[in-house]
């Protein structure tokens, strides 16, 4: 700051604190709602300060049947979400790493053709080709499976581009030196390339984990079996059932549990998260 007037400093912090409060308000209300009992949450105005039932609600949400009528416990949904997020992020990273490796370090016919084919996927978000993709997955018998949840989403132009960029900045002499040392392609990939891209992989993982965890439309379409429900998509069903028997404390606890893992990832790995975000969008 150039000027050092106390009044300016005060205003600066005031605005920022208000901003933080505004951004945090929805989650505060969620937490408060998740800490009261069912009865209290049916009386307007709803409370603004935390109650004492947080742990009870947490237990009931995680291990109880969740909402009446819904047979899938929330821990199962959390597990499904975790499985989907991990499969999507690890899958995306793995196939992007190897295809970027092939495109940068090998000269082979149709190299550019493959490159453009991967590029095309950038232009086709799942939302715009949802119906025919659903048909393909149905025909392959992948409905209601972890494979069906993750594989159609793991082709990634952005990740391939990013790794291509990373590989291009690694000096050519690394490869030459490794070849003189006697390392073949895969050995070079494991011993040199992977360790050198470690932070990029971690940064990308943070972004992709969030992307995978937060998938909504896709799991909604391809899972009909309640055992395959993910936590994020369960919110919709809960809100629908809330119209008959509103258990807002449980709904909000579920919402809280659904957003907790990605928030922890963002806050805990902030540096990697920022790096990943700025790298993939360039």
């Amino acid at each position: 700051m150039v000027e050092n007037r106390p009044i300016m400093t005060f205003i600066t912090h005031l605005v920022l604190v208000l901003g933080v409060a505004m951004i945090a308000l929805p989650i505060w209300i969620t937490l408060v709602a998740a800490s009261h009992d069912e009865i209290r949450m049916l009386q307007a105005p709803i409370p603004m300060l935390p109650g004492t039932h947080f742990i009870d609600n947490l237990k009931q949400t995680l291990w109880g049947a969740g909402l009446s009528g819904d047979q899938t416990p929330v821990w199962r949904m959390l597990f499904n979400s975790l499985a989907m997020a991990m499969m999507i992020s690890v899958g995306k990273i793995a196939i992007s790493l190897i295809s970027a490796f092939a495109i940068v370090y090998f000269k082979f016919p149709f190299r550019m053709g493959f490159f453009w084919m991967i590029f095309i996927t950038l232009m086709l978000p799942v939302e715009v080709r949802i119906l025919p993709t659903f048909e393909v997955v149905a025909n392959l018998g992948m409905l209601n499976s972890y494979w069906g949840l993750s594989i159609p989403l793991i082709a990634s132009a952005t990740a391939t581009f990013m790794f291509r960029q990373v590989f291009l900045t690694i000096p050519d002499e690394m490869l030459e030196s490794a070849r003189i040392d006697g390392a073949g392609p895969m050995r070079f990939f494991w011993d040199i390339l992977l360790p050198l891209s470690r932070t990029n992989i971690a940064a990308l993982f943070v972004i992709l984990f969030i992307y995978g965890w937060n998938q909504y439309l896709w799991p909604l379409l391809i899972t009909t079996d309640t055992d395959m429900t993910t936590i994020v998509m369960s919110i919709k069903q809960m809100l629908e059932s809330a119209e008959q028997s509103p258990q807002w404390n449980i709904i909000m606890m579920t919402a809280f549990l659904a957003m907790l893992p990605p928030i922890l990832v963002v806050v805990g790995m902030q540096k990697l998260f920022v790096q990943g975000l700025t790298e993939t969008d360039k």
């Binding site: 092939a102 084919m117 095309i120 025919p132």
Partner: peptide, 21 residues
């Protein structure tokens, strides 16, 4: 080898992107 390396990405792209599109 390079064909094997791009194969997973290309197969997923073909089956779940190009074909549906």
């Amino acid at each position: 080898l390079p064909y094997l390396l791009v194969a997973p990405q290309i197969i997923v792209t073909l089956v779940f992107f190009m074909w549906p599109a």
